[in-house]
Simulated scan of single mutants.
Amino acid sequence: MSDKNDLQAVDRAILRAVQQDCRLSNAQLAEKVGLSASACWRRVRMLEEAGVISGYAAQVNPDLAGLEFHAIVHVRLTRHDRDAVRRVMTELTVRPEIVECYATTGQYDYHLRVLCADMTAYRHFLDDFLFRLPAIESAQTNVVMESIKPRGVIPV
């Protein structure tokens, strides 16, 4: 499997099914996609080994887990030399409050999805972490008022 075009219809069916419910047994998945259990197991293993399936996870409701403050933070750097960028990327990836991080083109260098318990915790995140990184020029916060589509399924 050298690229995404190598995926067959049955692979796509498997990917759709496991995205909807990764707790399906192999037998249930096989029945759902029209394969024998052994053929299904082989296809899933192939997708895992190729990195198409990169992991399995539970969906957690942040509000019910005590993380009621949800923001999208747009970050601009003061400089873009290799060492500064590497340090910022390293620091951003280890903070548990940052659940998603994207390096992008455009006005901002990074877009972060941040979850915290409340506004006080978010203020500490900014003051004690983000604004202490030397390469950070600015951060604009957009508070999420409502999650319309919190977890999208990859359209395979």
Score class of each variant (00 low, 15 high):
40 C>P: 05
95 R>Q: 12
2 S>I: 09
31 E>R: 13
107 Q>M: 15
144 V>G: 04
141 T>Y: 03
129 F>I: 05
109 D>P: 08
63 D>A: 11
95 R>F: 10
78 T>W: 15
37 A>W: 11
153 V>T: 02
81 D>F: 02
126 L>M: 09
55 G>L: 02
97 E>Q: 14
23 R>F: 13
20 Q>R: 10
45 R>N: 13
90 T>W: 09
6 D>Q: 13
66 G>Q: 01
120 T>W: 05
51 G>C: 06
45 R>M: 12
154 I>W: 13
121 A>L: 06
121 A>C: 06
23 R>K: 06
44 V>K: 07
106 G>H: 05
57 A>V: 00
141 T>K: 06
30 A>R: 04
98 I>D: 04
105 T>E: 05
132 R>E: 15
128 D>Y: 03
100 E>W: 08
49 E>M: 05
69 F>D: 02
28 Q>P: 07
29 L>A: 06
89 M>F: 03
63 D>S: 08
116 C>Q: 06
48 E>D: 09
117 A>G: 08
50 A>W: 03
59 Q>L: 12
106 G>D: 04
81 D>T: 03
37 A>H: 15
92 L>A: 00
3 D>L: 09
5 N>K: 10
31 E>G: 10
122 Y>A: 00
23 R>D: 03
11 D>A: 03
153 V>W: 03
141 T>F: 02
78 T>Q: 15
83 D>M: 09
39 A>S: 06
41 W>N: 15
1 M>P: 09
86 R>G: 12
79 R>T: 04
44 V>M: 01
127 D>T: 10
120 T>K: 12
101 C>L: 04
106 G>E: 04
118 D>C: 00
90 T>C: 07
126 L>Q: 07
53 I>L: 08
